[in-house]
Structure formats: C-alpha cells, structure tokens
Amino acid sequence: MATFVLCDGAFGGAWAWREVEKELIKQGHAVFSLTLTGLGDRNHLLTPDINLETHITDVVNTILFEDLNNIYLVGHSYGGGVIIGAADQLLNRISKLIFFDALILEDNQSINDLYSKSFVKQTKEIVQSKGEGFRLPKPDSGPIYTTDHPFKTFEQKIKLMNKVELRQIPCAFINCTQKSSHPVMEPINQFADRAKQEKWEYIEISAGHNAHWEKPVELAKIFINLADKNDVYDMQNRST
C-alpha cells in the first residue's frame, strides 16, 4: 500500500481529486487530498494575508498531524511550488515528488518569476480591478467549485533551507500533452523538457491540463506505477 498526498493548483481543492481518490482507494492505497487555505470549501478563509508559506504549512501540517511517512507527494500546476516547500521541511517523510503538469520553484523564486513581466502586469491589473487587490478571480470556464485564488501566493518567494538534500528525493513529471497554448502553460512545458533532460521519470498523458477531471482512472494508474517503481528501487538499495 502506498500513501498519496494530493495538492491541487490555483482555484482548486480536494474536490478536484474525487475520482482519482476513489480509484486509488479501490486499489488499496491511502489518499489525503488537500484543500489549501482560502480555496474550495475553505474559501471563507480567503484573506489578503494568505501567501505561499500559508499553503506550504497546510501540506506540512497535514503530513505531521496524520503522521504520514513514505509519502508520494503530488502537486498539480501551482501545487508544484507548494510541494517543493513542504518537502524541504519534511525530507525524511517523502518517497517521491510527483509534479503533475506542474510549476517548480527554486530557492528565492516566486511563481510570478516564472512568467514574463507583461503577463504578471496584466494579471495584477485584473487582481486590482476585479479582486479587491488581493485575489485573482476564478476562471469563467471550469467546474462550479473553482474559487478565487489569493494572489500573494504567486508573489512570495520561496525559501528553501535544504537545497542539496532536496535534490536527493526521487522526482517524476507527468506531462499533459493536450493542454491549451495559453501563456500560463508556457513554464509548465519548459519544466516538462527539463524533467526529460535531468533524467527524471517522465510520463505523458493524452489529456488537457486538468487530467484529474478528464481521465482520473488513467491518472491514478500512473500514480500507482510510479509508486511501484519506487518500491523496486528501494528493495534493490536495501539488498546492496
């Protein structure tokens, strides 16, 4: 049995993993799907004070209070930056980081740093005009459960304390090959290329950016296969 902790991206929440979670549980695995502060069913907590550190702490505290170990920590889209921060604090509890069509942050880097100045400027203007200066309005399309996103989470630079040790954690990247050409996807495509160059486990799924809505069973099988591969690796290491 593997333990999966699932962190969704901007505007999302635990609800986005519902069908993936069902499949993983059916196959005998433990699953903890997170809703980050201010999002989804926790949208009543949305305030100007929520930042990236808040969301990292959401993940860290779930792992600590549930006393989880040997975790397959999954981050989708914006959630990729969140799980990096959580793993930095809980190195010995993570078996593998799984970046699912995700953004990846380096030390002292913010989500906004991954985008062009013109794109960030345009986004800030939307936040000011339609989001009271602190929230990015939810997309017009998509499930009814999407909620506005705290913009400070994109502005705050991540602080990593264990950069060398963090690089020792096995990583995988799942690339959704049918996603749109929207500018928000450009850095994700670059991280997919980087994952291949750095010899990470690299898997493609023929789906849009939100494959956990579109192809949950197929995505769950990918997660399980990634856990199985890690188990084989661990057994080989223990026997040498």
Rank of each mutant, 00 (worst) to 15 (best):
T147F: 11
R42W: 04
A102K: 06
E214P: 08
A2M: 10
S180E: 10
S110P: 06
Q236Y: 10
R194Q: 14
I94E: 07
T146G: 00
P187G: 06
I71H: 06
M161K: 15
Q197L: 12
K130A: 13
L105W: 05
K215Q: 14
H44E: 15
T37F: 07
F4N: 07
N210F: 01
T62Y: 10
Q168E: 14
G28K: 03
P170E: 07
D49M: 10
A102Q: 09
G38Q: 11
A14L: 12
W15S: 04
F32H: 14
T177K: 12
Q128E: 15
K124A: 15
D88K: 07
K221M: 05
L39Q: 12
W15T: 04
V5F: 00
N230T: 08
L6Q: 07
E186K: 10
I144S: 10
T54D: 08
D140L: 04
E106R: 15
T240A: 02
G80S: 03
F191Y: 13
T54R: 06
L226V: 02
T3L: 01
E125D: 00
K138T: 05
A30T: 14
S116C: 03
D41K: 09
Y72I: 00
P187I: 03
K221V: 03
T54L: 09
R93T: 02
T123G: 00
T147A: 12
D113R: 09
V60Q: 02
F4I: 09
I63T: 08
N112C: 07
I203L: 10
L52T: 10
H149P: 06
L105H: 02
S141E: 07
L226R: 02
P183N: 09
T47E: 00
M1C: 10
W213M: 12
Q89C: 04
L52G: 08
K138L: 05
G40T: 09
S141R: 02
L64T: 08
R42C: 02
N162L: 05
A195N: 08
E132C: 04
L36S: 10
E186A: 13
L46V: 01
Q197W: 05
L45R: 11
P48T: 12
D8H: 15
N69F: 03
L46Y: 01
H44Q: 14
D107Y: 08
M185I: 13
T62A: 11
Y115F: 13
C176H: 11
Y72R: 01
I98K: 02
Q178Y: 06
Y115C: 01
S129M: 01
I50A: 11
K221G: 00
N230E: 14
A172E: 01
K130C: 09
I111T: 04
C171M: 15
E53L: 13
H212R: 00
A172R: 02
L52Y: 08
K157Q: 14
S141G: 00
G142V: 07
D41E: 14
G131V: 12
T35H: 09
K199L: 00
R238Y: 08
